[in-house]
Design a protein around this nucleic acid. Structure first.
Lengths: 222, 222
DNA sequence: CCTTTTTTGTTGTAATTACAACAGAAATGT
DNA sequence: ACATTTCTGTTGTAATTACAACAAAAAAGG
């Protein structure tokens, strides 16, 4: 466990703690580390969740399968993101999403019940921890709204331009690298991959964007 | 202010407080009441937010305007929902949404900074308050994911069936009343109103659903 | 280095949707 | 009760998209 302390201390939820403080809190929260392999599901739609999953390393897709069997990618999460937070904090403990490891991943698992109620020994940092969770889940919220903006555009072209523009803003640069491969991007934007590919080529031809592999350049203000 | 205490105490965020405790907290949080009229914007895209808005009464649409001028309805909020919470809790204080009053509304406004940091006099209920906010924003999060599920369906028919099925689940009944009018529903589901109207008629003809005005009956399991 | 597998791009066609224009119904105001 | 306005439903057409099938390029695995 100790060998992961530096990773854990880098996460926004435990930021700035000393080793002995961290140790105390992890005990408090019944924290433990679990390794997942590429392709593993951390949990699925319908699972009852009672843990908070803090991603220390790896890459995880939050997905949903429709009634008709199509995949929707809600978002892609990396180290220092949390999953399960919002699920767990609500009255309804049943997951409405799948958490799929796209790479081998390292996850710190905490007992939500222990996290959310002040412990007897009322560790000094507990309230800061709760505030941090709050910030994290808020950011999650904003990202979901951004996704809704992206997929709510009318045409494939508008979806792409809106998505790329938002990525550009987040990267504070008009050149940036996409985290999705083409199929994932299509599943994220809810469009057909080949139609998307066609539209990307057209945008490139028209000089609005440029790209090579996953490196993109947005040449226009949206 | 006092005359609103019963409303405030009914909200999940202040639930179960005694009058004198509530009074102390509201002072702590610099809380005040503001009345809005139908059509008023509580805040707009681009506004810098530093308050928490707790809806005591009324009806508010969370909307976004696309670059191309189309309206997206993110969600509809009623009394005892919060707006501005997730906006305010992030480092980035710039709103990415509009909050539009669809009816005359009554809003309790709190200073976020005061809410999120423990006050000197450390009122007993402050940590419960933060936990409540946490629960609220989590539920918000889950609703956003549900919206994403609804609008991520491939066809208008699938969007409608998924939406109606989710409403049915939330109402724990296969008959329920929609909170949206037709144009709003179309803007929520990101589809053309007339095409949606056409598909609704078809679903009714085929016997999958029934409706009259906003009262709907879902006759199939999705 | 070569083979195999995976990812990405291209194109034609059928299906779906947006849009416009209008009719009918319901709600509102007087 | 009537006129006016708003909301909902209907239909035809043009635009957009999904899908399938395949080609080309890149990555992975010996």
């Amino acid at each position: 466990m100790q060998k992961y302390y530096h990773k854990i201390k880098n996460s926004p939820i435990f930021y700035g703690l000393k080793d002995f403080e961290l140790e105390k809190m992890l005990k408090c929260f019944e924290g433990y580390i679990k390794k997942y392999q590429q392709g593993d599901m951390i949990f699925r739609q319908g699972d009852i969740i009672s843990k908070i999953y803090l991603i220390l390393d790896g890459e995880i897709n939050i997905e949903k399968e429709t009634y008709w069997g199509r995949r929707i990618i809600i978002q892609k999460l990396y180290g220092s993101n949390n999953i399960g937070l919002s699920l767990v904090a609500s009255k309804n403990f049943e997951s409405n999403i799948n958490a799929l490891c796209v790479e081998d991943s390292l996850v710190l698992i905490l007992n939500y019940e222990k996290c959310s109620t002040m412990c007897q020994n009322a560790c000094f940092h507990h309230s800061a921890f709760i505030r941090n969770m709050f910030n994290i889940i808020s950011r999650e919220n904003i990202e979901l709204i951004e996704k809704i903006e992206n997929i709510s555009q009318k045409t494939i072209r508008d979806k792409l331009l809106t998505y790329l523009s938002n990525e550009s803003l987040k990267n504070k640069s008009n050149s940036f690298e996409l985290k999705f491969n083409r199929q994932e991007l299509a599943d994220y934007l809810n469009i057909d991959r080949s139609a998307m590919s066609y539209e990307l080529s057209k945008l490139k031809q028209e000089g609005l964007i440029n790209y090579s592999k996953n490196k993109f350049l947005l040449k226009v203000e949206i």
